[in-house]
Write a protein that binds this DNA or RNA. Sequence first.
DNA 1: GTCTATAATTCGATAGAC
DNA 2: GTCTATCGAATTATAGAC
Lengths: 189, 189
Amino acid sequence: MSDSPKARRSDATKAAILAAARERFGHDGYERATIRAIATQAEIDPAMVMRYFGSKEGLFAAAAQFDLRLPDLGALPREEIGRVLVGHFLDVWESGDNFFALLRAAVTNEAAAERMQQLFATQVVPAIAPAITDPKTVPIRAGLIATQMLGLALCRYVLRLPPVVALQREQLIALIGPSIQQRLTGPLA
Amino acid sequence: MSDSPKARRSDATKAAILAAARERFGHDGYERATIRAIATQAEIDPAMVMRYFGSKEGLFAAAAQFDLRLPDLGALPREEIGRVLVGHFLDVWESGDNFFALLRAAVTNEAAAERMQQLFATQVVPAIAPAITDPKTVPIRAGLIATQMLGLALCRYVLRLPPVVALQREQLIALIGPSIQQRLTGPLA
DNA sequence: GTCTATAATTCGATAGAC
DNA sequence: GTCTATCGAATTATAGAC
């Protein structure tokens, strides 16, 4: 076979670099995460990072690719959408470091902030649009939902405010799900 | 007088450094804000920063002192508390760079994150406690309010999501005030 | 009190041997 | 493809002249 344990070593190395990069960018943010630290964690030479990704920015661009995998909300009972949405975001956040790499970087890096705006416009807005009756209110409702969900991510995983950390998954769904539901299908003000 | 225009020069210099530090920390975050840039903006020598504050960390600690000046909620009509709170936070955020210096730094700096937790525990929780009937629910309600308000600050001023930026002060109060009111005086779930 | 000069690190990036 | 060696720039911080 062309796929012996050592074949395609470069792909495995590349994947290891990306995994380490997401973890370092996620923990430390863009500027504190160093190519040297990423390489050490991936157990490869720092020069390989440059060879594969060209620059630190190139590495971040590759590591910050992100798919929220938002479900088709149109296929759900209307009253459950809010809770499903909260549960889905919790799943995504706790599934890896990808998202926090982007969030932490976006706070101090302009390019990362723009990627966050793109992610909002190309994934969040289209995904929730089917659940909203009046198309004119889609951007505002999406924006308000973003403030609540990103605020939850910020307080729980980044700032680690004790009462927010203490809440368990089911409690968070029960507490915040109805608020999201209200932003989707309730009156705006 | 002992207070001629050039007297107490050191105090004025110190204040100028702190003002510049808040602006640079607020715009760039902790790591990208350099002592050189802060000194240039304050129109003084970089060495003076070290002389007055000892280190970059010392300067940040001095610059990140922050008073939310939350009003006495017990003195307000119960139904207005939510809207007043939102308006007050908008005032504070738009009154200077102090808060964003702390927020941006807290995302990539552990010490700053702990200061944020302190600010939550010593200012937010006590301030909203009088508005809440069941004392046992105070931390959870305060935590949920923090997720909504910090999420708003994040999306509007840091990530600059277009629909959230477009909303005007009065709209934000009308849209988010009732949600905060619900977190304070409504049923929890 | 103010500034010059510079020490001591650390970083991203490059060149080139093997 | 992988690694060694190192460059050049930028940083915080210090020492000391005036």
